[in-house]
Design a protein around this nucleic acid. Structure first.
Length: 494
RNA sequence: GCGCCAUUAGCUCAAUUGGCAGAGUACUUGACUCUUAAUCAAGGUGUUGAAGGUUCGAUUCCUUCAUGGCGCACCA
């Protein structure tokens, strides 16, 4: 990035020099006794118009507006919670200080001290007695009433976005609250929060391409994790009965309105439970979040009214396929039989690559015919085994696994299963994955010998659940793009 | 990776059929003692994303590239 040479910036740099020449420090070290804007606006809200109290307050913030009317002026100072109007009178602070105030720029940080009053028009304001420049701003803020709209600048310079668009901060406040509520919820249920490696020598836990990095001293390549799953289940083996991790995963895949290369995932594992119990936990948690944050269970997303009132519907994967395609997907359909699946895809006019594996074509049919209808919360259960190498098969049908995905507002929000704890079966499935990988399937998982060794020591029956936190925040904040809920989304170099 | 669209002043946006690049805001100066998109008066503001081409003349048409948005693909 090159240095911006703009007339307005040069003008401010001149002002900065002028300040130094006058012996004024444009970047003082601190400001004592600052109140919060919300506290000021709350404490004095019962004042009558025109009434002034005898109590002085200190306040500081970024000057975001100025209205000069001769010998008196008004400005708004914005702090971390809101804004407060200040009233600056030439007769109150003296001619020299008043001139200094008029020479300050929109964007400068300012500290003030004075009594609080309410203007004739009813706005709580500080009647300034003392004023100090706390930090000089050298760049011009975007326009005050159209604000900043350019998405590129909004994401690249999120600091400007935050200054100009109050709604952006609201999203990240909600995001923080959601995460806090989740931790409280799980802590109350005696889940232990842990941190497992983000740098792994074997990729596992999800079908995804990893980022590769290199450790110099060990002279070995490492992968950024695509999921913490296999480590968390090692902890289940180790006797940590209930465990969760809420942190980032990294996947080397395309970027879209629903995908960012690094994203936040919650994974929960509970011993002696299964995917049915995970549905209950998942439902209880999301319902609880909505109640606590919005006080209700009806939300709106992309123009759709969504009702989160439990219990949420549960429907089988094949049941939904059948309902929405009219094709009989009963047990006689062999999903491993590619020609059969291809025939169905042709009939439904679903395009596919002939190199694509049969279960991927099936997944594609599901995405095309079923997902667009999944607005209200629904747990989709009982997936084909080939899609889920870490999930346990159903007792009565080895080709179907105990797994669910939660869909709300047309996208997948959560994924869970009864964890496969049979080390012999797990080795078999991982070996199959390895074979697929050797054949060129870049997303196939690796054979993790240590993980199987752990299972050989014995893992109790266990339910596991993963929730995409970014997507949950999208849903609950009405955001159309994942970039709206990630402070610094991935961008190409400027 | 593919397709469509966008890129003009710090910001938000105009510019007729290819004919002098324009407004608001911000900024500077002046007037103004309760404004809040303050108001009024005056003033400067540009590599039209980059490079090339067509043309007497390109913001406008063509090609390539860059970045972004959306969709698809990849992917949960």
């Amino acid at each position: 990035m090159t240095e911006d040479v703009n007339l307005l910036i040069l003008q401010r740099k001149d002002k900065l020099k002028e300040l130094y020449d006058k012996g004024i420090n444009p970047f003082p070290h601190k400001f004592k006794g600052k109140c919060k804007s919300v506290d000021i606006n709350e404490e004095f809200k019962s004042l009558n118009n025109g009434e002034e109290v005898d109590k002085k307050v200190s306040f500081a913030g970024r000057m975001i507006s100025r209205r000069v009317m001769g010998k008196v002026s008004f400005s708004h100072l914005k702090d971390g919670w809101g804004k407060v109007q200040i009233y600056v009178g030439k007769n109150d602070i003296g001619e020299e200080n008043y001139l200094f105030y008029k020479k300050m720029d929109i964007g400068d940080f300012v500290g003030v001290e004075g009594k609080v009053f309410k203007t004739r028009t009813g706005e709580i304001s500080i009647h300034v007695e003392k004023m100090i420049l706390l930090s000089k701003s050298l760049r011009i803020l975007p326009e005050k009433w159209h604000g900043l709209k350019d998405t590129e600048i909004r994401y690249r310079q999120r600091y400007v976005d935050l200054i100009m668009n109050d709604k952006v901060k609201e999203i990240f406040i909600i995001r923080s609250r959601i995460i806090k509520i989740i931790r409280q919820f799980l802590d109350k249920k005696e889940f232990l929060e842990v941190e497992t490696p983000m740098m792994q020598s074997i990729v596992g836990g999800a079908a995804a391409q990893p980022f590769i990095t290199h450790h110099n001293a060990l002279s070995m390549d490492l992968f950024l994790r695509v999921a913490p799953e296999l480590y968390l289940k090692r902890l289940i083996v180790g006797g940590i009965e209930r465990v969760y991790e809420l942190n980032k995963n990294f996947r080397n895949e395309g970027i879209s309105t629903r995908h960012n290369p690094e994203f936040t995932m919650l994974e929960i594992y509970q011993s002696y439970s299964d995917y049915n119990e995970m549905m209950e936990i998942c439902e209880e948690m999301i319902v609880g979040i909505s109640k606590e944050i919005f006080g209700k269970l009806e939300i709106e997303y992309k123009g759709n009214k969504i009702d989160l009132t439990p219990p949420w519907k549960r429907k089988g994967f094949f049941e939904l396929l059948q309902e929405n395609t009219g094709i009989d997907f009963s047990e006689k359909t062999d999903i491993a039989d590619k020609s059969q699946i291809m025939q169905i895809a042709d009939k439904l006019k679903v395009k596919y690559d002939t190199n694509t594996k049969s279960h991927k074509i099936l997944d594609h049919i599901f995405d095309t015919f079923v997902v667009p209808k999944l607005v209200q919360p629904v747990f989709i259960t009982d997936y084909p085994k080939c899609l889920s190498p870490l999930a346990k098969s159903k007792e009565n049908n080895p080709e179907i696994v105990e797994r669910f995905e939660l869909f709300i507002g047309n996208f997948e929000l959560a994924n869970a299963y009864s964890e496969l704890n049979d080390p012999v079966e797990q080795r078999k499935r991982m070996t199959e994955q390895m074979k697929a990988k050797q054949k060129g399937d870049q997303e196939a998982q690796m054979l993790d010998e240590d993980y199987i060794r752990a299972l050989e020591y014995g893992m109790p029956p266990c339910g596991g659940l993963g929730i995409g936190i970014d997507r949950l925040v999208m849903l609950l904040t009405g955001s159309n793009s994942i970039r709206e809920v990630i402070l610094f989304p991935q961008m190409k170099k400027e």
